[in-house]
Design a protein around this nucleic acid. Structure first.
Ligand SMILES: [Mn+2]
Ligand SMILES: [Mn+2]
Ligand SMILES: [Zn+2]
Ligand SMILES: [Zn+2]
Lengths: 133, 133
DNA sequence: ATACTTTTTAGAATAATTCTAAATTGAGAA
DNA sequence: TTCTCAATTTAGAATTATTCTAAAAAGTAT
């Protein structure tokens, strides 16, 4: 829960992201050891709640940079807003349609078999399973 | 390929959709026996190509109504635009990221096992598998 | 044809996101 | 330190997808 500034610097450094003030602040909000699925608005609200002063554009910039660097995984589940997942392990999701909320499916429960042969010259980037509830 | 007007009327009737002129025209563009994954812009282009005069709002209205009635399945694969799938069978998709295009995964190849127990009081609305390439 | 309801439509509005270009920050050099 | 310059941040404009509004057109029933 308490986020060590050293850890954050290390994390950003390892991903070749310059540890600026707002990047560290947003990283601190997100990487607290808990798995999260946040929208841009969630992050803006988190920032406000902790008196991190920033702009909407910077939140977009930062989340996009983190996703590009592999610090976050972007998930598109419905039209409208994107979610960013702090859980980078190979896993799948429940989507609660009425709450517009994602939740990790526990463990490595799901097995997918019978993957078809791929169109030639293609390779899998990811396999996404979403169970809508 | 040639779309019988009688069939279209029957199809719409069975789904309790009044067979108006533009609904029949759009149904005719979509339900030709081939499986399709179309965006709103695709439908507008198809309509233009066949001299079906309509409006953007009507295309949205019609596709949404068809989806609500179960004549189309709406698929959200990335942010941005929605796709509407004319293939109503239980199936999954390849998504070609560079082309922003969906393709059905042939047959009932994919099997999913190890579905976790659901949060209480919930039931599955759908299980969506997307293989990104 | 008349009356009434539903649909269609152009354009305005909204929402999520990206872009622009100016101000600020920050890292290294002097 | 102060200077320099590139990288970052930001407010607001722009873009894109979609929905809304409210007036006109079409469809249905009498
Ligand atoms: Mn997945
Ligand atoms: Mn959008
Ligand atoms: Zn997750
Ligand atoms: Zn399909």
């Amino acid at each position: 829960m308490s986020v060590d500034s050293k850890q954050i610097n290390k994390l950003l450094g390892e991903h070749k992201i310059r540890p600026t003030k707002i990047r560290k602040a947003i990283a601190g909000l997100l990487f607290d050891g808990r798995d999260k699925h946040v929208s841009v608005d969630d992050v803006i609200a988190l920032a406000r709640a902790r008196d991190v002063k920033t702009s909407v554009a910077s939140v977009y910039n930062t989340l996009n940079q983190f996703a590009a660097a592999g610090l976050l995984r972007r998930i598109a589940v419905d039209g409208g807003r994107a979610f960013f997942d702090t859980n980078l392990s190979d896993h799948h999701h429940f989507y609660f349609e009425d709450e517009e909320r994602l939740e990790d499916i526990p463990g490595n429960a799901i097995e997918i078999s019978g993957l078809p042969k791929l169109p030639k010259g293609r390779q899998i980037k990811s396999v996404d399973v979403t169970i809508r509830l």
